[in-house]
Design a protein around this nucleic acid. Structure first.
Lengths: 334, 334
DNA sequence: CGTTGAAGG
DNA sequence: CCTTAAACG
């Protein structure tokens, strides 16, 4: 069983105090006023809450049902010696309330990369402290917006926040951890926005980020993970036809991804499973998309070409709820 | 038992889907990286939620424990033939979620006056429709702010929204219902604000309102109910000494109340119970004030002097939770 | 639809 | 402390 935290039960009901001293029950006096209901202005909204809570916050089975290990060998014939988990939590405090840290502890990855933490450093609850990990939070200047975090068992040689760009570094979108034999980048790529209002900003990021990573790649192999906010190909989302003008599947964003990969990187999931459809990491909260698996693959592990054969597996943990994204896990031998 | 609505249980937990097809449990590979936790920047906020939810949303007993009838006779010797309930709900949608409408139905008053409904007409949920009542909502132009509602079994001769003052009528603070033999006024009086920033506005209200009511009082007797946002005398709040500079107990607000009563009205609760202490209708949500009964009497029934002897009783329903105010009930014979 | 801060109480 | 609307996704 996953450790359960003490949490208050939310019994939302009008309460009645227990010290009533007037218990005489008599029939209410008959009332001369007769009621008929007709002419008032009608309320238009339907109900306070639609029907039932989305299944999202309910436990069906427990985390022990998941196999967190991996027996697959990589192309070189080695088992993994490094496990990395990446998860867009869409608000770390909300995920904590849903016992999301239990998943992280159970996964027991060597490195955990979180995106959209949406929490100022001084508001981080105690629960973010995970024993056995060094952790690093990079927040946005805009409170409650964006933000990334990195947990790592081994202390990195160096930690760098941002990519030396004032605009993006104000938004807590990138942590670079340098290890002896590789760089690990945790990225939360700008969303192109409703009606693509921030597509220009996004394309600017693509350029700045590519330049930044190419420089690193000259020194050591690079592992990039996070929410890259693009479904690369048609296979990477349920409804490619109707989303070509929507954030995450525009021609520009898709070409940006292709362009990035052409610079010498591999989408590990697609490399391992070239034809696997219906494999998504994000589902809109709208219209119960997740239960119908109407999703997008927006979260990735990209690795430098030189270490692509080191990858053992890339797993999508779509059994894990708590956010509109699910975690993804990379097993690699480095 | 009060009728329970179908509501989703809020089991806030990270959920795991029930279709895991990989159940091989093998020991995680031993990891060469050793962990030691020391140097990261410390989170400063303590916990996500303090300790436990305030008792406010929990049912202890049920509404059947309350005696909603009244056998007391008024000074003329008559039992009541009219029951009026007044409740500052502090958000009608929140109260509905806590089954607050069950209280209203159980009380079964002839007239129900609500304050701080905080809901645009087009966002009112279905649950505001109560069978057997005509209802009238007066909203603020500022969404989610102020707003009053009136439920009445007998259809009034006339309904008037506001008091012909542009400033106050934009804020949904007053409904006047004219009945054959009296006026019923449902008022949500402006709060003087943090550091008394809106005390001038409040004092302006006092003048405008007094003039308005005095005019009505010349025609028919008046019953005023609602959140008058003042504790009149020291007996009307737990901590009079420390609150003389705070909204609700300033000299100006208290004198405003005295001044209003001097115009020919009676505070029915205090008239019936001149020395009753610890009788409050509001408790701050801060510091568990309600469980310690650190409260204020801010909600009133005021009646024209000419009908003061018609009053049978004025009850404070402090057993009813769901808001930071509790309901009050007037039993009268008219 | 769900998370967040901000205003208001 | 609690409710709400607005921004963002």
């Amino acid at each position: 069983m996953p450790p359960k935290r003490n949490r208050a039960s939310k019994e939302d009901s009008v309460r009645v105090k227990n010290d009533t001293n007037t218990k005489i029950k008599s029939k209410a006096v008959s009332n001369k006023r007769k009621s008929n209901t007709d002419d008032h202005e009608e309320p238009t909204a339907k109900r306070v809450k639609k029907v039932a809570k989305p299944v999202l916050n309910k436990i069906d089975t427990d985390l022990n049902e998941i196999n967190f290990d991996c027996s697959k060998l990589n192309a070189i014939g080695n088992k993994y010696n490094l496990k990395i988990s990446s998860w867009n939590v869409s608000g770390i405090r909300a995920v904590i309330k849903k016992n999301g840290m239990d998943y992280i502890l159970k996964e027991d990855a060597d490195i955990v990369a979180l995106q959209e933490t949406k929490c100022d450093k001084n508001k981080l609850p105690e629960e973010v402290k995970l024993k056995g990990y060094h952790y690093y939070f990079f927040e946005s200047k805009k409170p409650g917006y964006s933000g990334v975090a990195l947990y790592t068992k081994e202390k990195p040689v160096n930690i760098k926040y941002g990519l030396d760009n004032a605009e993006f570094d104000n938004e807590g979108r990138l942590i670079t951890a340098e290890y002896p034999n590789f760089y690990l980048l945790n990225a939360y790529v700008p969303n192109a926005g409703q009606k693509l209002v921030t597509l220009p900003k996004r394309l600017k990021w693509n350029e700045v980020f590519k330049d930044y990573v190419k420089d690193l790649d000259k020194k050591k192999p690079v592992i990039i993970c996070g929410d890259l906010n693009v479904a690369h190909q048609e296979i990477d989302l349920k409804n490619p036809k109707t989303n070509t003008k929507n954030a995450g599947f525009t021609k520009e964003e898709r070409e940006g991804m292709t362009d990035f990969l052409d610079a010498g990187f591999v989408d590990t999931f697609r490399a391992l499973y070239p034809d696997k459809a219906d494999a998504y990491t994000f589902w809109s909260y709208f219209a119960n998309a997740r239960s119908k698996n109407i999703g997008w693959r927006l979260d990735y592990f990209l690795v430098s070409k030189q270490i692509k054969d080191n990858v053992c597996d890339n797993v999508i943990r779509d059994e894990v709820y708590g956010s509109d994204h699910c975690p993804i896990v990379l097993y690699i031998n480095l």
